[in-house]
Design a protein around this nucleic acid. Structure first.
Lengths: 195, 195
DNA sequence: ATCACATTAGAACGATCGTTCAATAGATGA
DNA sequence: TCATCTATTGAACGATCGTTCTAATGTGAT
């Protein structure tokens, strides 16, 4: 049962361009007409694939976050220690910077006219990276690399910092930003490692 | 030469409500009609005081940033060391959280349709807090409290972190967030203090 | 009381937004 | 080849946006 044209690919293209635009210009800063123009398909066709703008965004955010989690799961095993994992995570976050969708999600969730289901979906999304961070810190405590610490709180603080650094991805050079990420981890580790 | 009604106060009210709305809902997420509704004055009257939306925002951002700098200048002398200043700065940032306008400024500056003068003005704005941060780190290096470090880079990293924590000001309780700020400074200090 | 001017409101504009829908074009199976 | 279904377009909608303009209203000086 083959597709007639390649509708699946069309949907993919729209999704990719939309992700990029949302990440760069925010939710209300991105128009369906922008997505249409950038992807090369008509405005009406976007609605053939996605019910509306909110649902489109939620899908993209969920999808990119799910992919993010899977990729990290696959990569993380290569690092031998919690300390190495933390440096690896910094580079990983930088290289998979679709996480800005989380920030844009905050914008959407904060808006009073956003539907409650959407808000709920968006809050649930933050769980994915937070669990990944928490896993590293729990490991570090268990192995004795890190001081005893509140794992959830530390994950929250680390995640906040990494997410904020991501925002500079459109205005700074990769090399410079990469050094910033590494430096951040070094400082962070200095604050939680066993003396 | 007194004002007829109290136009100065009117302008102040509009500015305050607008600042709050911009900080909470972003630039494109805030409509002039919102500002009108929230301040209690007509939409047309907003344009009596401010030329247009962009100029209004730039004014608010510049004004709040200038005030921020002055207040910190006045407060900072009370702290005896760079370490104490850094903890004080964290509380200060939390209590004067209008800094989110900086984040909103990024949103505006990233939008291609924003006028170049506006973009320039917004970039210049980040200088204010960055200098305040850099001052603390320079002091710490001079007094020997901190390890030798790149002052500008460290200020950038610290500022990024504090700014990101500010974003939670609308969704978290003050007490909890305050502990997060303090904890962040503790971790950060652990990474830069002399061993 | 009246005049001039500062202050405010509110209607109206063109543009753009998210969304809907009827019509078309391409592919498939009979 | 024809009918059917999917994929796609483009026009059109009502709402909302930033902005402008005109008219009304309050104030201080004369």
């Amino acid at each position: 049962m083959k597709r007639h044209y390649d509708s699946e690919q069309t949907r993919q293209i729209i999704a990719e361009k939309a992700t990029q635009l949302f990440a760069q210009n925010g939710f209300s800063g991105t128009a369906i007409s922008d997505i249409s123009k950038e992807s090369g398909f008509s405005k009406g066709h976007v609605y053939y694939h996605f019910e509306n703008k909110e649902k489109l965004f939620v899908f993209l955010a969920q999808d990119s976050m799910r992919l993010w989690g899977e990729k990290w799961e696959a990569v993380s095993t290569a690092y031998p220690s919690a300390t190495a994992k933390l440096y690896g995570m910094a580079t990983f976050v930088l290289n998979h910077y679709k996480t800005p969708l989380l920030k844009v999600g905050q914008e959407l969730a904060a808006n009073p006219s956003t539907s409650p289901e959407t808000v709920k979906s968006l809050y649930d999304l933050a769980v994915v990276p937070m669990q990944a961070y928490a896993g590293i810190f729990q490991l570090g405590v268990d192995t004795g690399e890190f001081d005893t610490l509140d794992v959830q709180e530390t994950a929250f603080l680390f995640g906040t910092w990494m997410g904020a650094l991501c925002q500079h991805v459109f205005t700074m050079e990769y090399e410079v930003l990469h050094r910033m990420f590494q430096q951040s981890v070094t400082i962070f580790l200095g604050g939680i490692q066993k003396k």
